[in-house]
Design a protein around this nucleic acid. Sequence first.
DNA 1: CTGAAAGCGCTTACAG
DNA 2: CTGAAAGCGCTTACAG
Lengths: 335, 335
Amino acid sequence: MNDVARVAGVSLGTVSHVLNKPEIVSAKTMARVTAAIDQLGFVRNDAARSLAAGRSNTIGMILTDVGNSLFVDIARGAEDAASSAGRSLLLANSDVTFTKQESYLDIFNEARVAGIILAPLDAGLDGVDRVRRHGRNIVLVNYAGDRTDCCSVVVDEEHGGYLAATHLMDIGRTRLLFAGGPQDLHAVNARREGARRAVRERGGSVSLDVVHSRNLKSSSGRSIAQDLITSGALPDGILAPADQLAAGLIHELTDAGISVPTDVAVIGYDNNQFASEAAIPMSTVSQPGHDMGREALRLLVDEIDNPRTHEHQRVTLQPTLIVRRSTTMPSPLRT
Amino acid sequence: MNDVARVAGVSLGTVSHVLNKPEIVSAKTMARVTAAIDQLGFVRNDAARSLAAGRSNTIGMILTDVGNSLFVDIARGAEDAASSAGRSLLLANSDVTFTKQESYLDIFNEARVAGIILAPLDAGLDGVDRVRRHGRNIVLVNYAGDRTDCCSVVVDEEHGGYLAATHLMDIGRTRLLFAGGPQDLHAVNARREGARRAVRERGGSVSLDVVHSRNLKSSSGRSIAQDLITSGALPDGILAPADQLAAGLIHELTDAGISVPTDVAVIGYDNNQFASEAAIPMSTVSQPGHDMGREALRLLVDEIDNPRTHEHQRVTLQPTLIVRRSTTMPSPLRT
DNA sequence: CTGAAAGCGCTTACAG
DNA sequence: CTGAAAGCGCTTACAG
C-alpha cells in the first residue's frame, strides 16, 4: 500500500480511503490511486486490515457433514446471502467429529472472524461458550439444544415426523414402523414423537412400532429389514429418519421379493440427492437447507452490524413432504 | 498476550516463545506462562501473527462442487493430511461458477494463506497466474490443463474410460455407446478416448458409438435413453461419464421394460454415494479422492516448507473399476 | 534461556 | 477532501 501511495503521489491514509470509503474521495484522486493499484497488482493484506480495524470481514461456517446434501444446501444458502452482504464465507467440515468441531471453532476464533455459523453435533455445545466468551458472534443452525443466548435456525423436526406418519396413514397404511436411529439423537427423537402424535390424533386402529439402530446408514436399514423379514411380521408403512437408512431398507425388502410400495411403503428423511435418483424414487421429508443457511447468515450479520439493538432469536422453519414412488400405488398404465 | 506476560511476570517475547518454540523455554517459565494463558483464556490473534511473521498457518482449498462426493473425498483427504502436518484447512465452494472461483482465489490471496489447493474449472486458469504472481503457493487438483509451473494431482482419465470399456467387452458386450457429456470437458474427452483405445486394441467386431449431451445430470441420461428407445437401436453396453447420467439412463431404460444389465449393461463414473445405494447398484469407475487430497496437501506443504529445493511435479493417480449389479448377469439364485 | 525493541501493513481519529 | 501519526497484537533477530 505504501508503494501504491508513492506511485499515486498521495498519502497512505488516502489509499486506505479509496479502498474503504470511496465516497469521501475526490474523483481525480480516486482515478490516480486505482490506476496505481492496477499497475502494481496490489492486493490488500487482510491480516493487517483485520488487525488494524479490529474486525474481519469473513465469516466462518462449520458443517457437521459435507457428505450430507442438507449441509451442502445450507452452505449454498449462506454463501448466497454472504455475497449479497459483501462478506466472504469460509467453510470447515467437522465430519461428525466433536474434536474437529472444537478445533475449527478455535481456528475461527484465532482468525478473529466476524462471526461463526455452527451446525453443531448433539455431543455438546461447550465450544459455543468458549467462543462467545471472546465476544465472537455465533449462530447455531440445524440444532441448538435449548440455548437462547445466541441466535439459531432450526427445523421443526417434530412436524417432519408428523408429516411423514400422516402421509402413510393417508394412503391407508395402518401398521406403521418408525425404523432405526440412535436413541440419543435429538432430531430422531423429535421425529419419532411427531409420528406418535400423528397416530394418536388420527385415532382408530393404527399402530406405530419403533425399532432402533446404531446409526443412520444404509447398512442399518438392511439389517432392520432382515430382522423384519425373519420375524415374518412386516409393517405396511415404514418411516425412516434418514434417506440412507430408507435406501437400505428398500433395497433389502425388494431383494427379498417384498414390493415397495405395494407391500410396504417407505418414507425417508432429508431429501438427499440420491432419493430422487433411486430406481424406486423415494418419498421423503425435505428440510429447507438453502433457507436455513440464508437465515443463519442474515441473523449473524444483523448481530455483527447492530450489536446494541440485536436481539437473539430462534427461527424455526418448516419441513415439507415430498411424495415419490416409494409411497405411491403404482398406476397400471404409465403416461 | 500483553496481559499474559504481565500475569506470568515475563516479557512479551517469552510468551511468544512458549507458543511457537516451546523447546527453547525452561520448564518453570513454561508452566508459569501456560498457567497464565489458561487463567486468562487467552487465544492468539492469528491476524497479528500472520502479519508479524509474514506468513499464515492455514491453507485454503477451493472445491468445484461440494455436492459431488468426489470433492468431499478430496477435502477429507486434504483435511487428514493437514491435521497431521499441523496446518488448518479452510474450504470454499466455487459451485461450478468461474466468478466464484476467482473471487475465492482473491479472498485467499488477501488472507495471505500459506498456500492454496484449487480444483479448477475447465473454464480457465487465469486466476492461477494472478495468485502465483503474488508468490502464493498453489497446487491444482483434479484438473491441471497443461500447466507445469505448479504442482498438480490428477487422475488418469483416459485410463478410466479404458477400464470401463474393457469391462463391458469382458462381459461380452459388443455394441457399446459412450453416452453423454459436453464436448468441451477435458475429463469427458479423455474418458471417451480411453474407451476408443480399449475398443481398438480389442479388435474384432466391437463397435463404439458416441452421443453428446448438454450436461452430466440425470435428466440428460433420461433424454438420451428416450432417444435410444425411440430409435429402436439399443446398444448392449453403455458407458456414462458420470454416475448421475448413468442413473438417469438406468431409470428410463428400466421404466421402458428394458432390463439392466440383461439387455443393456450400464457403467457410470465417479463412484458417487448413491451409486451403491440404487436399487440396481451401479458399476462405476472410482477416483481416489482421498488420496488426491492427501497428495495435493503433501505437495503444497513441501513447497511451503522447502521453497529452495522444491520441484514442481504432476502426480497422476489411477482410477479403479468397481463392478456392481448394473453390469453383472443376475445369478438365478441369491445367496 | 530471557528481555527490549523494531517492524509487519494496514485503519482511523484528528488536524488542516 | 487529504495528510501525519498512533496503534492494532504479534514475531524475531539481537543482546545479554
